[in-house]
Simulated assay, not measured.
Amino acid sequence: MKTALWLYLFLFLAFFDLHAQYPILTPFAMSLGAGPAFIGWMMGMYSLTHLPGNLLAGVLVDKNGSRRYIVFSLVAAGILLLLQAYAQLPWHLLVLRAASGFALAFLSPACMTLLASLSSDSTTQGKYMSGHGIIHTLASVVSPAAGAYIVHKAGYSGTFTTLGWLLIATGLMALISVPKHAPARALASQPQPQSEPASLKPALPSGKQAGTSRRYYLLPFFVSCSQGVLFFELPLSQGQDGMVSTGVLLSLMSLGALATLCLMFLNRVSPSGRIAAALLAMALCFFTLAAFTTVPAGVVLFLLGAAKGVLFPAMASLFISLGSGGRLGRTFSLQSIAMSLGAFAGPVAAGQLRGHVSPYFIAFVLLMTAILLLPPRSISRPSVYHPGLNNPAA
């Protein structure tokens, strides 16, 4: 538990730092002379360079543990933020954001693997993942508005310098406090949970099982696409002088996520129901943003955040079930790759099509496609994956 608390502290500081940039990156790029299409590529490039880092992280985290990669990600990203304070041209920002994408690609697989390895009990793992979501959301509640406020007081250069030193300090704290190896490699030896599913394996060829499992990586791809569209369009719709309003709206979305993440009893509901309801609710929120402009954006974003608070812990439980002993790093790496591809495709597509269709409608179509391609009720079939996933007593 001590390791989890330290990790939650570092995650809070890191997420605070990263989310504080969301309302200011687009106005900063516009101040350097970038247009909407270039901004879409800039945001997408950050996610595209996640891919080589994710591929390396999947193998290296399983082999060497999480600590060194957590420290590397935080310190390297902090140094790049210090350099970002001196960007003078749009391509400077593009290069630095691409480098940041690679550096931070190690952080999520390393943190999720370390959290998941702290216990062998599926319910406890679900609580750890919910705690991760709560910490992430708490940081994102205050950080967008805080980032916009810091820019208002200190300017872009002062803001990036402050955030950069914060990340470096967090990385040094992690070097001292995070253990070299997880206290218990519980997931590497789960005789009880793994023995029951083994009896079901002959009923389904291994190749079909693996292929079926891979289909679920489309889920984070479509969700990340829709989030990329939101982070691209929201600052543009508020204008260059709307940093504060953008920050407030993003904070409202995080408050909505916090409201549902605190409902711990949802961990006892099957992921199939949570995923289906959350995807539909998110899709309807994006449709409302695209078609009903008279509805207050703050209300819609609060509801969108509430749906995200239901969806992400359910996805975490899903991918824990897909990762067998000693392969959690690879599993979370593939999840991060899917999310990186989505976060690249979303802003780029929105930047190219913004003159023809509302980007929010693009996000609506993506989420509805996710529902059609990934029927959530198939998650509960024991032949597809871990039968204990939908068992509250597991």
Score class of each variant (00 low, 15 high):
residue 333 S to A: 15
residue 260 T to M: 06
residue 182 A to K: 02
residue 247 G to Y: 02
residue 228 G to M: 03
residue 244 V to A: 09
residue 29 A to P: 07
residue 105 A to L: 04
residue 165 W to A: 08
residue 5 L to V: 14
residue 200 L to P: 07
residue 352 Q to W: 13
residue 5 L to F: 12
residue 307 A to C: 09
residue 290 A to L: 02
residue 218 L to G: 14
residue 241 D to H: 12
residue 303 L to S: 04
residue 146 A to G: 07
residue 18 L to T: 11
residue 280 L to F: 15
residue 198 A to N: 10
residue 56 L to Y: 00
residue 329 G to P: 08
residue 392 P to Y: 12
residue 41 W to P: 00
residue 68 R to K: 11
residue 207 G to K: 14
residue 94 L to D: 01
residue 7 L to F: 06
residue 297 A to L: 07
residue 134 I to Q: 05
residue 128 Y to E: 08
residue 76 A to R: 00
residue 40 G to T: 04
residue 61 V to C: 03
residue 78 G to N: 03
residue 229 V to Q: 04
residue 366 L to I: 10
residue 196 E to F: 15
residue 98 A to K: 01
residue 160 F to W: 04
residue 31 S to Y: 10
residue 356 H to A: 13
residue 368 M to T: 11
residue 183 P to C: 09
residue 249 L to D: 04
residue 61 V to M: 01
residue 138 L to Y: 07
residue 115 L to F: 10
residue 217 Y to P: 04
residue 381 R to T: 10
residue 239 G to H: 01
residue 383 S to L: 15
residue 155 G to V: 06
residue 320 I to W: 02
residue 182 A to E: 11
residue 80 L to Y: 01
residue 160 F to E: 00
residue 218 L to M: 14
residue 210 A to T: 13
residue 42 M to A: 11
residue 56 L to G: 03
residue 123 T to W: 14
residue 279 L to G: 06
residue 20 A to Q: 06
residue 142 V to E: 04
residue 247 G to D: 04
residue 109 P to Q: 05
residue 234 L to K: 00
residue 123 T to S: 15
residue 386 H to S: 12
residue 283 A to R: 03
residue 3 T to E: 07
residue 152 H to A: 11
residue 369 T to C: 08
residue 175 L to N: 10
residue 184 A to R: 13
residue 281 A to F: 10
residue 88 Q to W: 02
residue 108 S to P: 03
residue 39 I to A: 03
residue 346 G to F: 07
residue 112 M to V: 09
